[in-house]
Amino acid sequence: MSKKNVSIIVFPGSNCDRDLSVSIQKYLNVKVSYVWHNDSKIENYEMIFLPGGFSFGDYLRAGVIATKSPAIHEVIKYAKKGFPIIGICNGFQILTECNLLKGTLLKNNNQLFKCENTHLKVENKESIFSKNLKKKVVEFPIAHAQGNFYTTPDSLKELEDNNQIIFKYSSKNGNINKESNPNGSLNNIAGIINKKKNILGMMPHPERAVDKFGSQDGILFFKGLGELL
């Protein structure tokens, strides 16, 4: 096992921390530590994950209360130093609420909690998070009521101009259309990175696509992160 360390920040209400840990250990072969949200020191980690779930019961707005946890101040410090940070589902919501990523996640436009497999076109194949995916379209499940990505026209232009959009909801063949948009997300956006390109936020769950009974594209995702460690 590699001596590198990966941490998962756990908030009250996180529920994907264990699945994430299993996938990281299995496919990255590294030590995973859980960091409780109240810890004010995160030491010696090469990569940080913010897991899915319903931190603080999604009170006020999904993810916002988590942004005031002491561990998040540490995450911001690591982010500014250029360490890779990945937020999945609620983790993505937290990253937008603490301004590490642009935009926000509104309630799904169809008034549904969406729990289904989605196809995602890999829009940017050069990012540190997606360059080893080896597929044009990957299949990861989603499970959320608040995943409708929205941002202002100016920041959308910035995301597009800087190639910061990583995943878009698409058909199986990679066509980006209304029918494959599960929640009303602006331009079908499912995952973005920051301008410095070291922070990824995505609504779909790669850690739920690693087993025999469904898509196994999550394995590509986690293995692809190996060279960052």
Partner: peptide
């Protein structure tokens, strides 16, 4: 900083 999200 908490109660509102200036984006929306």
């Amino acid at each position: 900083d908490l109660l509102s999200n200036p984006v929306i």
